[in-house]
Amino acid sequence: MLVVVCVKQVPDTTQVQIDPVTNTLIREGVPFIVNPYDTHAVEQALRFKDRFGCRVAAISMGPPNAEATLRKALAQGVDRAVLLSDRTFGGADTLATSKVLAAAIEKLAQEEEVGVVICGKQTIDGDTAQVGPGIATRLNFSQLTLVDRVDELDLSGKKIRVSRKLEGRHEHVEAPLPVLLTVVRELNRPRYPTVAMRLESADAQVEVWDNKVLQLDVNTIGLKGSPTWVSRIFSPERAKGEMLGDGVHDPEGAAQLLIDKMLEKDLLAL
């Protein structure tokens, strides 16, 4: 059985600023990182590998430099890495993205049965949380989102039982395989690659698949296949706070002022 994990290279959003004139993200000089949720997805896939000996493939759609993200997954121990990169894939919304990823998973499935696909719950740049479910829908897989614990993967019975982390509660659910999981940070602690694995991965092969490989209708992928587009992006205005009291010379007075203010705004109510 093959476990496929989807990863994405994202700009380090702590370092992203919005260009006030063009209203777009300033990406120059901003380093790229692996989408943090995806690192937990990789870890879960590797735990399935450790436990059941199944193979793990990591796939990513992105520009050629997204290879670094896949290389990191290789360093952590995935067996195969495929970069889906083609100009026609560019500018994709979540619909077009999930279409390409689903096609790649189907292609992988021609070689080896895919039992589980794992994605991060969302990416930190787009924050839509739609790509995972989009893939599941296209592949007609069961979908379990927001997974924070895997209770059991029963390969012979072809089913999985997980806990989902919802607002204020947990849900324990079971689904038949094949399944797509989207995972939250609480699921696990990603492993840190050993030096040996890093050196191995530096020479490992990252396969690059373009649309010649996937053979998708160019009108259904990339910008052309994307029904949504971003009309405007902006930083929310944040009201500037005021300075209260003198914390340096009169800390107690300042604290009192702060408490009064919080009481006034009803922030301390139980």
């Binding site: 380090d12 702590t14 370092q15 380093p31 990182i33 602690r189 990603p190 492993r191 840190y192 690659p193 050993t194 030096v195 040996a196």
Partner: peptide, 22 residues
Amino acid sequence: LVETESRFPEELLNLFENMEQR
């Protein structure tokens, strides 16, 4: 422990990632 076993106190994972990325 770090380089061969990848075993270290949990708090250090953040430190290592922060150092490498930022």
